[in-house]
Simulated assay, not measured.
Amino acid sequence: MPAQDPGADIEAVAQTLIEQPLLHSASIGVVHRGQTFIRHRGAMQSGKPGAPTDATLYEIGSLSKTLAGTLVANAVLEGKLGLDDDVRTYLQGDYPNLQYQGAPIRIRHLLTHTSGLPNMLPERANTILADFTDHRTPAELNALYAGYGKADFLSDLHAVRIPRAPGKEYAYSSAGSQLTAHILERVYGRDYEALQRAFFNTAAGMTGVTITLGDADASRLAVGYHSDNPVPTTPMPELPWGASGNVKATVPDMVKYLQFQLANGPVVKESHRALARFDDESSIGYFWNIVAGDPLTGTYYAHHGGVPRSQCYIYIMPKHDLGIFVITNQSGEQTAHAMEAAIDTLVERIGARNRR
């Protein structure tokens, strides 16, 4: 029925987004009751015509973690690993530091950000990111990660100190998701990117999702802006494995991801299972933030992604058979707030339509 078509609402929300200070362009992908909608608005480069397209490759930042979580859920269902396994089972060498007073870091602690690992390795990255909006931050990150590989990460992992018993306290850790990717490589005996590509191509038809870009694809990577700097900035540097924040995808591929999530097959169902509860409304699954208690939205699954020149959100709302992906090619203090407001408006309008 036309009254149920949210296309006009999506266009209005996209237009509102690009009218925000500093936001040049936005792309939105929505799946609602089996229908798919994609809208691109604005100009990729300030002052130059040219909106993003379905071919534009975006950096989806920490949404990458939900793909890693899905792969772990699949591994659990295949009996390849267990949530309560000590992570050191899958590490070569001795890591007596990856425990606290005899309590080891387990797989579930990596997935729920309760391991006690730092946000980033090397530790210097955390100092740089503490002043995220400083114009020097992208270049400093690039310099830090130039030539920083898997062996460097594992070497730095030896020096980590776990400050409390794992499983007790939430502390966001991209290092934990990097370690998760290493464990998946050990379990399957395959490169993480190859594992990711094969699974999501087969399970969700996501043919263009990638971590490393070939020369042919580099020209399709979205231009982006950091903070209030009017000059386009560089892509997020490549991290070891890339599972914490290096995935690139088109909006059509992310729409396929929304469809895959809403279909709620066995792997998705497992990945959405709460592994740690923080209060009546907040829990976390396989890297998925789970929010309950709102009668309008019902229980939903969400994640934010951010790199120095892009921010995005994904929301999965089974109550409304609704999936939303929003991305913009700017990353600053107010970007996430602007996108949250846009998504709230969209959900309210779609929720109102569903009640008619």
Rank of each mutant, 00 (worst) to 15 (best):
D279G: 06
G214N: 14
V255P: 01
D191Q: 15
L213Q: 09
A243E: 10
V267N: 00
K256S: 13
E193M: 11
V255R: 02
L213Y: 09
V291S: 15
S244E: 14
T233K: 02
V247K: 10
L221G: 01
D280N: 14
D215L: 14
R190W: 00
R190D: 14
G214E: 05
F199N: 04
V267W: 00
D253I: 13
S244P: 00
F287D: 12
I211D: 02
E193K: 08
L221H: 15
L213K: 06
L195G: 03
V255T: 06
F278Q: 01
Q196M: 15
N246I: 05
L239K: 02
F287L: 13
F200T: 01
A243Q: 05
N289V: 15
Q261V: 01
I211N: 03
Y188M: 00
D215G: 12
R186V: 12
K269R: 12
E193C: 08
G189W: 04
K256A: 12
W241L: 13
F278R: 02
N264V: 01
V268T: 09
S283G: 13
A216H: 10
E270Q: 14
Y257N: 03
D217H: 06
T212R: 10
Y192G: 06
V255Q: 02
V209K: 00
P235S: 06
G245K: 02
A198D: 15
A243D: 01
A203T: 07
L195V: 04
A203I: 04
Y286Q: 09
R186C: 05
A276I: 03
Y192K: 04
Y192N: 01
T250K: 07
L195F: 12
L258K: 05
D228G: 00
M236D: 02
F287M: 07
R190Y: 03
P266W: 03
V267T: 07
E185Q: 15
G205F: 09
G189Y: 08
Y225R: 11
G265S: 06
K248F: 08
A204L: 07
S244T: 04
P252S: 07
Y192E: 12
P237L: 04
R197T: 11
T210Y: 10
P235V: 09
V255N: 03
S282C: 06
S271R: 02
A204W: 03
T250A: 08
A222V: 11
T233L: 08
R186W: 05
E270T: 15
P230A: 14
A198Y: 02
V267C: 00
G265W: 05
H272G: 05
G265H: 02
L275P: 02
N229E: 08
E238Q: 12
A276G: 06
A263H: 09
T202G: 05
G285F: 07
A222T: 08
D217K: 15
P230V: 05
T233H: 11
G285I: 10
S227N: 13
V267Y: 00
Y192F: 12
S227A: 14
I211G: 07
R220W: 08
S282V: 12
V267R: 00
F287C: 09
N246L: 04
